[in-house]
Design a binder for these strands. Structure first.
Lengths: 233, 233
DNA sequence: GTCTATATCTCGATAGAC
DNA sequence: GTCTATCGAGATATAGAC
């Protein structure tokens, strides 16, 4: 795995999302997979409307006609990519929460930051595509999320409840669980989105991306852990 | 000023950026200004390539040919809009830092969060256009920022030094000033970008946007202030 | 399944009447 | 300055040979 920021390293931002033996994804031929991941990268950069089928074809090193052979239309291709990305984004959060376990809240927090920044930091296109949808109004997202939330078992809700319990137990200071969660996730994700600006402030992040991720974990955890320590008084 | 989230309130996201007696902007006719602000909104939603001249024309309630009459081409229009937005974004940060003053660091931090969230929260398109550039690689941003940074007086640098001095004075705990700044700005901006997702967790934010901004300020400040309190030990 | 050629449509841009 | 009409480039999508 490269140590440099993925933009110095084309085709390394989606991290082999589609394949893999985790079984949750529909089976795809090798060609379909190449197209799918190329599409993810281009849609992530340019957004739904800004993306060009030709650019996706080039990125997949394939003929433009094949895109339509496999996915019929740009809209269908985007729909499949976005649907996949949404669930991957959701799952990344879920897994980070799960692995956080049920130990002390401090340990859970550390584990969450570690896993979440690791995953998103190595699958930037998933995040970028989500953000592109945010910017465009997020109607699609709101729809998917509302369906997810309706179950009452959505990962963000579960994590918020974990925080709430820690507050009730006096394990941490009395913070608003939802706002603390928002601050936490912001501290994980925004620096990855704003990398072109952040890297002007932290230039070594470009050549040592892994080190940057670790520094983000450490600094974010330090300030947040202290920020919610219960007071003796 | 509306209390609802600006997306429920079209044409209210750029907040009359261009006009006003602050003098720094080039003078524009009323028509140019309408076009300019419409362009800002559409570019913010769809990005440079995704935006359509027709959509900008519709949003400005004007004929499509007028766009070319006033701004000659899409590229020139975008260049002007982006240049303007970059400096507005920069200035918002600068002003938030300035108003933070030179009192105690805690007071400066509070003032910064207050002014920064206020400005960006009411000029979402400025933020969205910046983020669109981030997603697209940020080459333009990196160029502008590098020029700004070269002066050594860029607002982020100045704020980082303010933090560094507070650390040296023992006023706050020994944090890495650059990472603390990144965490701080992330906590201010990301919730505004990710509003479609955040508002599923905090539904009242839709109908009481101003209240949401105030709650963000309070919760972010609470956790960060505690997070950097110096230790007695 | 893969490629070339091409149909069809959309978009940026301009010409020219008013 | 403003509008209608339209050109031409470039985009999505398809037809059809292989």
């Amino acid at each position: 795995m490269s140590e440099r920021h993925p933009e110095a390293d084309p085709a390394a931002t989606s991290g082999g999302l589609v394949s893999g033996p985790d079984g949750a994804e529909a089976e795809r031929t090798e060609t379909e997979e190449r197209i799918f991941e190329a599409a993810l990268r281009v849609f992530a950069r340019k957004g739904r409307d800004g993306a060009r089928m030709q650019e996706i074809a080039d990125e997949a090193a394939i003929n433009k006609a094949m895109l339509h052979y496999y996915f019929r239309s740009k809209d269908r291709l985007y729909a499949q990519v976005f649907h996949y990305v949404f669930h991957r984004f959701d799952r990344a959060f879920f897994e980070a929460v799960e692995r956080a376990g049920e130990d002390s809240f401090a340990a859970a927090l550390e584990s969450f930051v570690d896993h979440y920044i690791d995953f998103i930091g190595h699958h930037l296109d998933v995040l970028k595509l989500m953000v592109n949808e945010f910017l465009d109004g997020g109607a699609v997202i709101r729809h998917e999320v509302t369906a997810m939330i309706a179950t009452g078992q959505a990962p963000p809700q579960r994590f918020a409840r974990l925080i709430a319990r820690a507050v009730e137990a006096g394990e941490i200071a009395p913070v608003d669980p939802r706002h603390f969660l928002v601050t936490l996730v912001s501290g994980c994700l925004f620096p990855l989105i704003a990398f072109p600006m952040v890297s002007t402030l932290i230039p070594e992040a470009v050549d040592d991306y892994e080190g940057f991720l670790e520094a983000r974990k450490k600094n974010l955890l330090d300030v947040l852990r202290r920020g919610i320590e219960p007071r003796s008084g």
